[in-house]
Every structure is written in C-alpha cells, then in structure tokens.
Design a binder for these strands. Structure first.
Lengths: 311, 311
DNA sequence: ACCCTCCGTTTGTCCTGGACAAATTAACGC
DNA sequence: GCGTTAATTTGTCCAGGACAAACGGAGGGT
C-alpha cells in the first residue's frame, strides 16, 4: 500500500502508452520523471501514472502531448471538458430520452437496476430503435463522460459489460434466418472493443443477414482465412476511438490486399470518423449507413430479382 | 495479394511476440530474417510470420525458443503434438461425452448447429454440470487442438464467442439473489480471455453470490478502486495460458499491495497452473476450488450469523 | 472570405548494440 | 535420490540517434 511503484511495463499496460513513448517523453518534455531502482530501471510513482492517464485521456480527446506536458497540474485538470450537464442535456433531448437514469445506475454501481432499465427500454422500443436510439447514444454519452474524466474506468467497463450482455441476449432471441449476405464480424489485434460490432450485428441480423461473430482481435491473415472458410460476402471491422489512428489505413490496405477481391470490406466505428476513403474499403460512420450498404449489396447481388431490397 | 509484407509492429500484433523479442531472436538465433524497406526498416515475409506463430504455439506448449529456432521446418511441424485423436477419445470418456459433435460443428463453421447443440446440452445437464462437464473440458479440448495446430485461429475465436454467448445467457437467466460475498470479476490489462471468468461467474452466481462482471483488461489501480467502490469482498482474476508467466506473480503482488487488506484476491485459470503460492493471494486450479473458497469465505464471515445479512 | 498547396514542427516508431536479472537447466556433493 | 550451487538461456530494459507521417500555420490563388 505504501507508494506502490510501477515498472515501465506496468505503466505501458495501465496507460496504453508504449515504452518507447514513455522514454521519449521523458527525454523531450522532461515528464514523466521516474525514479530508478538499484539497477537503473525506471520506477514510476503512482501520482505520475495518474497524470499520464489524464494526459492520455486528453490526447484521445484531441489535445497534443507537447502542449499538455508543458502544463501544470491545475491547468491540466482545467482542460478536462466540463460537459456532463450539457451532455446529459443533449441526451435528454434525444427521442425517448431519460438517459440520465442509465448513467445514474452505472454511477451508483447498481447492476440489477441498470439491467432492468435496459431490459424495459428494449421491450418498449424494439431492437432496432433500442440500438439506434438508446445503446448508441448511451455509448457516446459514456464515452464523453470518460473523456471528461467524470466516470471511472471500472464504471465504463461495467457499462460495457452489462450492455454487451443485453445486446447479445437480444441477438440470440432473433430467429436465425441466415439469408445472404454472409457477414463476418470481427476486429483487428489491439482492438478489443466489441460494442460497435454488436450493434452492427443486431441491425444486420434484424434484416436477416447471416452474421458470423468472431469476437475481437483477429490477426490479419486469419481474417482472410476466416472469410474464405466461411465463404463470407462481407468482412465487417470495427475501430474504436481509442485505436491508434495512424495505423488504421495501413491496416485496412494490408487486409484488403490479402482478402479475396470478391469479399467486401466494411469498416466502422468512432475510429474511422476522420478517415478518408480507401479503394476497396467501405467506411461507415453510423448504423444507418450499414443498413444502406446492406441494401446496396443485395441490390447488386440480384439486380433482376424480386423488388425486395428490404423494408 | 502479392507477398504481403509485415512491419515489425504488425508481426507483434499477429504473433504476440514483442518487438524486442523479434529483434533479439534475429540477433541471437538468426531467425527471423526480415527484408528491409528503402529506409532500413524490417519487413517480414508472410511465411516467416507463419513460422513465428508456430514457434509461439509450441512455446506456449512448453518448448523453449532456443531449441525451436534451431530446427528445420519439418522438424518443427513434427513437434506439433499428435493428440487430437487421443484428446477426443479422452473427451469421449468423460461423463456425458460426445464432445466430437461440438468440435465438428466448429470445424465446419456451423454456427447454428453449435449453438443448438450447446443449448440442448445446457438444458439437459443444468448449469453447474454444463459448466463443469461440458464447457470446461471443451475449452481444454479446443486449447489442445489449438496448441497442436489442428484448428485455425478463427475457429478458436468462433468457439469462444459462441460459448461466451451461451454462458452469459445462462447467467442472465438466473435469479439475482445477491447474497454475500460480493465478487468483482475481471482480468488485468493484456489478458483478454474471459471464458474462465464467465465459468466462475456462473458457478458463483448459482450459489447466490453477488457477482459484478467488469469485463477484461482492467488496470491495476482501477481494480483496486472498483473493489472499494463496489465494497467487494473478493476480487477474482483470470489468467489464460497465453499470459506471460513471468509477469503474473509480480502483477498479483502489486495488486495485493494496492488492494484493501480486507478484500480477498483470487486468481485462477490455466495461467496460474505452475504458480507457487503467494501471501494474500488465493490460487485456484479448477472450478471446484472456487466453490470451496466460496464456502470457506462464508464460513469465516459469519460463524454465528444468520444467512441473510442482505445489503 | 474560402480553399488549396507548401513548408516547418511535432511526434511516434524504428534502429543498433549493450547490459543484466529472472528463470531454467546442468552439475555437483551429500 | 535429492537439495544446492553454478552455468546457460532468454526476455526486458537502456541510451541515443534517425526519420517519416501527421499536424498546423503561412501564403497565394480564385
């Protein structure tokens, strides 16, 4: 309990900042300033780890490290956006609001209450509206609260875990119609967020598509193999906002090059927001564009078939 | 499609071998031997990445890199354990066998068939026997097949994803009694496997314990905060066989030092198999020891009290 | 005023080569 | 056979240098 010290590997794990970056910041900006153990290896005091996590949060929110690391602690904290009232207000303005109820359950660590509230909402709205008007905005709201530092990591995890369960349960309750196209859903290594993928799966499954959920973190070569083995028509990937932006386009290009040309590649999630178009890759910014893409695929697949692209 | 080349970061992602290790192996053992791009950066040909993945598999199975990297390709492949028939046979010998049915569904990428088979088994056995006699041995079986190279990564992922769904669904169907102890279930950063955690949750929930599932990859400091915020009695962690052995004991000691002394720390999973005891940490090697530990906690907590302390 | 291109700056990742400690294996004495 | 010590194996860390991709602002054209 007494001033627990973190090795550089532990800091990498807990902050998501690579060892290289940690050493480079120390060299360039003079922070962090870890102690050294008897063998000269870095030992980071807990307060510095805290500060690094705050910096990382602010970076994910768009700030640049050079500025952040030059600031004093107070100025850093002042940067944390003061949005929670506004955010909640925005949420309330959305159709079928009362998002603060959900957030309150999470904040109070009320597992049963949150599950029950979700369940009720699902029953009332139906799956599609539930995903689009409840889960998606909720995820955004929680994401904003997280960026602003208004909720703890474990609260975000609790939200994610409970919401995932609800979604999977709803998906499982759907009849398996398994019409074309067949869609393989997964994410690349290092990307462990699956909520977006589940939302897409829910929407596509509702339309009767044949979804193959492969979980997260699939190596590139295995994604290609999976597509082949499952005779997939589409590979759908999800990138969260936390995924290193600089890697995404290279990854997609790489994957595109190892995928059969007949397989479409879809990429969505908050991580592809600012992404420019790539040849052979379909970037989708929201759930409705996934629906549109599905309709487009079906239209292209059977140009003269019956006029039933979807509802 | 033409000889896709991997950067060192891509290889790290796809093999799980750190950049440091990749460079060190090249220096020490003369493998891998990546090409260089115009700027001198390593570019790994796909076949070498394949070989590295095989080597990693064999290492997880207990072999040592020095030996493996000195071998020729053929000898390497020969090392892949020839256990699938034996393993399947063992499985068949287990109570209420027919494991080959499940594996066959996975091998044929038959999503609906696998789900249905699981569902039937669950209904027939009840949750506890389902977890202990079906899911656990199945996971072992798949793990062995994976080590032996008899199934693809995406097949393992499919198995994991579908099985997770079934388990979560079963857990959700349980009545929430929420008796003590309150157990926070999670895993440390870098450890994304959750199947073991779900099995424990199922078993503990069946006994009426108040389980808080926080998903995977929780930073150490946040685990401590979560335990405090939720007023947890127990923190349960899971380590898969793939988790770097050398880090586990350090991690547990570190976590123990930041956890309140009144909170028990349980660690389970294939990763702690060869782990020696640590003070203040309870190592569990199977599901029944989790049950035993739960009983022990309850006995110690209320030697004379009634069975309804409630919240 | 707006957009686009160009150029300097910021920032992350990669490189080399060295060092050491934890873990494993081998050797040794009892 | 078994516990203890020595040797080897193996992963991680360190330092400092280099460079390219991304970012941001300045200037020129419409």
């Amino acid at each position: 309990m007494n001033t627990p010290a973190f090795t550089i590997a532990a800091v990498e794990r807990d902050t998501g900042l690579s060892k290289d970056v940690l050493r480079m910041w120390e060299r360039r900006y003079g922070f962090p300033t870890p102690d050294r153990d008897e063998h000269g290896e870095r030992l980071y005091p807990a307060p510095q780890v805290e500060r690094l996590r705050l910096v990382k949060r602010l970076m994910d929110a768009g700030h640049r490290p050079g500025k952040l690391l030059a600031l004093a602690d107070d100025d850093l904290l002042a940067l944390a956006p003061k949005r929670p009232p506004q955010a909640v207000h925005t949420a309330q303005a959305l159709p079928d609001g009362h998002f603060e109820e959900f957030v309150a359950h999470i904040r109070q660590h009320d597992v049963a209450g949150y599950q029950q509230a979700l369940q009720q909402r699902l029953a009332r709205q139906g799956l599609f509206a539930f995903v689009q008007d409840t889960v998606a905005p909720l995820a955004t709201l929680i994401g904003e609260a997280w960026e602003a530092g208004h909720i703890e990591v474990f609260e975000e995890h609790l939200f994610t875990e409970l919401t995932k369960r609800q979604l999977r349960q709803a998906i499982a309750a759907l009849p398996r119609t398994a019409q074309p196209p067949r869609v393989v859903l997964t994410s690349v290594p290092e990307e462990q967020h699956i909520l977006g993928l589940l939302m897409v799966e829910a929407v596509l499954s509702l339309e009767g598509a044949d979804c193959i959920p492969l979980g997260t973190q699939m190596p590139i070569l295995d994604i290609a193999r999976a597509a082949e083995a499952h005779q997939a028509d589409i590979v759908a990937l999800s990138f969260s906002v936390a995924f290193p932006q600089r890697q995404i386009s290279g990854l997609l290009t790489h994957l595109r090059s190892v995928l059969p040309a007949t397989v479409e590649l879809w990429a969505g999630g908050a991580g592809v927001r600012r992404l420019s178009d790539l040849s052979g890759v379909r970037i989708m910014h929201d759930l409705s564009s996934a629906l549109a893409a599905l309709a487009a695929w079906r239209a292209a697949a059977k140009p003269e078939a019956g006029p039933h692209p979807s509802a």
